[in-house]
Structure formats: C-alpha cells, structure tokens
C-alpha cells in the first residue's frame, strides 16, 4: 500500500518538474519527488541509501540548484513558438522507450516475485554495517578513486567559476 502512495507522489511531482514553467517550482517539485524516492528506498529496506538520498539530493543538490536559480535571477520561461517537429519526434522516442520497457519488464522471469520479509535475525541485515564493510574492504580502491574524483570536481568548479583574468583587467 505504501509503495503505491510513494510511487504515485514521486511520479506526480516528477511530472510537475517537467510541466512547471517557473524553474523554482520545478526545483521544489523535484525535492518532493526525491523524498518519495527516498521513501521507496526505505520500503526496499535500503535505509542507508534512503538517508543518503535525502541528505545528498534533497539537501545539498537541490539547495545548489535553488542557489544558482537565485544567482542567475531566472524568470519564468516566456511562451515561444512550439517546434511541432521536435515535439512529435520527442513523443515518438518517449513512446518507443515506454513500450520497450514494458515488454522487457513483462518478460522478466523473476518479475512476478513478491517482496518477502527479511529474515528474523536482525544482525544479518544491518544495512549500514554491511554497506560500510563492503565499501571499506572489497571496494576500498574504488572509494579512494571517488575521493580523487571529488577533489578534481572541486578544483574544476573553482577554475570554472573564477572570472577570467582579462575580464578583471577590462574593469568588468
């Protein structure tokens, strides 16, 4: 039952992200959509991923989006001429994707399997412990690579956001 409520909320607000003309409304709809997605993770007993989703996406990433929208002072999109050829092409691509997905998912062998409750022993499925063990033992090298990637991203953002030297010299 909870699954249907949360997936309904998630899909509805994801649709609102696309439909809203004002980017601020889109960003706030995306926050609600991501909260629904975090709730879906919790229904799948992935509590750690659910918490990370709320902290990183609805916390950090969406604040960054809203901050940039505020910084650039973007107004609601004014209505322009609709390119019907692009619209039709997009609709065809979208329809083909949904049909393909439905066929692929429908022919999946394990598909109709229902969600079964986890075993009684609570020590066996503490997911923070299990994920942490996997990250720091089997995937330790990947974790360090990820650290390097984050460092490069940080440096890259600083370089990209810095004003060019000739801009400053030109008095802008």
């Amino acid at each position: 039952m909870l699954f249907y409520i949360f997936s309904g909320v998630m899909l509805l607000f994801a649709g609102l992200v696309v439909v809203n003309r004002n980017p601020v409304s889109s960003a706030l709809s995306l926050v609600v959509s991501f909260l629904g997605l975090a709730a879906l993770f919790v229904t799948l007993n992935a509590y750690f991923i659910g918490v990370i989703q709320v902290l990183v996406y609805t916390g950090a990433v969406m604040v960054l989006f809203l901050f940039i929208i505020m910084l650039l002072d973007i107004k609601a999109e004014r209505r322009r001429d609709i390119n019907y050829l692009a619209l039709g092409g997009g609709a065809v691509v979208l329809l083909a994707l949904v049909v393909q997905l439905a066929t692929a998912v429908g022919s999946l062998g394990a598909g109709p399997e229902k969600l079964s409750p986890l075993p009684d022993d609570p020590a066996a499925h503490q997911d923070v412990r299990q994920v942490g063990l996997a990250i720091f033992t089997d995937y330790n090298f990947h974790l360090q690579l990820l650290g390097v990637l984050l460092l490069i991203a940080t440096v890259g953002v600083v370089v990209l956001s810095r004003r060019q030297a000739d801009d400053v010299a030109g008095g802008r």
Binding site: Y4, L11, L101, A102, V105, G106, L108, A110, G111, L115
Partner: peptide
C-alpha cells in the same frame, strides 16, 4: 509489491 512493479515505476520515472 513485486519486482515488476518497482521496475515499471523506475522505467516511468
């Protein structure tokens, strides 16, 4: 819910 339903919701998203 079944695996199919989760995958379908994911595909729709």
């Amino acid at each position: 819910p079944s695996l199919n339903e989760y995958l379908m919701v994911s595909g729709l998203l």
